[in-house]
C-alpha cells in the first residue's frame, strides 16, 4: 500500500476542495460567523448579568447564578444543545416555525454565559477593594461605583480569557449541526462533512478545518496581544526607580 498516495487521496483531493469551496465560503463561513458572533454577544450580555448576580450581597441573587453556572458548565455542550434545540422546539415553532437556528444560538449563548460569567466574576473580584471604597468615599452609590469604576477594570483584566472563550465558541458552533439544519443554515463543519460523505474522502473536512483556523488563529494572536499589553502596561522596576527623579523635577517645576 502506498501510504503517501492514500493520505493524498484522503486529505488532499484538490478537486473535492475546489468543488465545495464556494458553498463553504458563502454558506458555511457565513453561518459559522453568525452563530459564533450572535452567541458571543448574547453570551457576553448574559454572562455579565450572571457575574453581577454571583457577586451580589443578596443570597436570592447569588444562588441562582451559582446553580446556573454549575449546571451549564457541568453538562456536555452537545447535551445542552440537544436538550434546548429539540426540547424547546415545540414551544418556539409557534414563533418562528420549525427553524432550529435560533435555538442553536440560544443554547450556545447559555453555555457561553456560564463560562463568561465566571470570567467576569473573577475579573471583577480581582479589582482591589480600595477602588470601590474610593468611589464610595467620593459619593458614588454602590451600583454607580461598580458600573463606573470596578467593572470596567475587571473586564479589562480578563480580556485574554474572554477572547479564549470566543475561540471556544467558534469551535462549539459546529455542534449545532446535531439539530438538523436546513441546507442554507449549515455551518463549516456540516458542509465539510456532507461533502466528505459525498466524495468519499476527508479533504472537504480538512478545508473546513483550515477555515476554522483562519478564524481562530488571529483571535489567538489577539489574546497574546492583550496579554502582552496587560503585562507591559504595569510599571517596571526601572520606572519605579525613576519615580524619585520625576518627583524632584516636578517639585522644581512647581517652585
Amino acid at each position: 500500500m502506498d501510504i503517501w498516495s492514500t493520505l493524498n487521496d484522503t486529505f488532499l483531493d484538490w478537486g473535492s476542495m475546489k468543488e465545495v469551496l464556494p458553498e463553504m465560503l458563502k454558506v458555511g463561513l457565513l453561518n459559522t460567523l453568525v452563530l459564533a458572533a450572535s452567541s458571543v454577544v448574547l453570551g457576553t450580555l448574559l454572562g455579565m448579568v450572571v457575574a453581577v448576580m454571583a457577586l451580589s450581597r443578596k443570597r436570592w441573587l447569588r444562588w441562582p447564578a451559582k446553580i446556573y453556572t454549575d449546571v451549564f458548565r457541568g453538562l456536555p455542550a452537545i447535551l445542552t444543545i440537544l436538550l434546548i434545540g429539540q426540547g424547546l422546539s415545540p414551544i418556539t415553532r409557534h414563533w418562528w416555525g420549525p427553524n432550529p437556528y435560533p435555538l442553536g444560538i440560544l443554547a450556545l449563548s447559555l453555555i457561553a454565559a456560564a463560562y463568561i460569567g465566571e470570567i467576569f466574576r473573577s475579573g471583577i473580584q480581582s479589582v482591589e477593594k480600595g477602588q470601590l471604597e474610593a468611589a464610595r468615599a467620593l459619593g458614588f452609590t454602590y451600583p454607580a461605583g461598580m458600573r463606573l469604576v470596578v467593572i470596567p477594570q475587571g473586564v479589562r483584566r480578563v480580556l485574554p480569557a474572554l477572547v479564549n472563550q470566543f475561540i471556544a465558541l467558534v469551535k462549539e458552533s459546529s455542534l449545532v449541526y446535531f439539530l438538523g439544519l436546513l441546507a442554507s443554515q449549515r455551518e463549516l463543519f456540516r458542509i465539510g462533512q456532507d461533502a466528505a460523505a459525498t466524495n468519499g474522502n476527508l479533504s472537504p473536512l480538512l478545508l473546513a478545518g483550515i477555515f476554522y483556523l483562519v478564524i481562530t488563529v488571529p483571535l489567538t494572536h489577539l489574546v497574546n496581544h492583550f496579554d502582552k499589553r496587560l503585562r507591559e502596561g504595569r510599571p517596571t522596576d526601572e520606572s519605579r526607580a525613576d519615580d524619585v527623579v520625576r518627583e524632584e523635577l516636578a517639585h522644581a517645576d512647581h517652585r
Binding site: E128, G130, Q131, E133, A134, A135, R136, A137, Q153
Partner: peptide, 14 residues
C-alpha cells in the same frame, strides 16, 4: 460623603 473628602494610604486612583 460628597461633603467629606477622603484620601487613602494607597491613593486609590482609578
Amino acid at each position: 460623603r460628597r461633603r467629606i473628602g477622603m484620601v487613602f494610604q494607597h491613593f486609590n486612583l482609578f
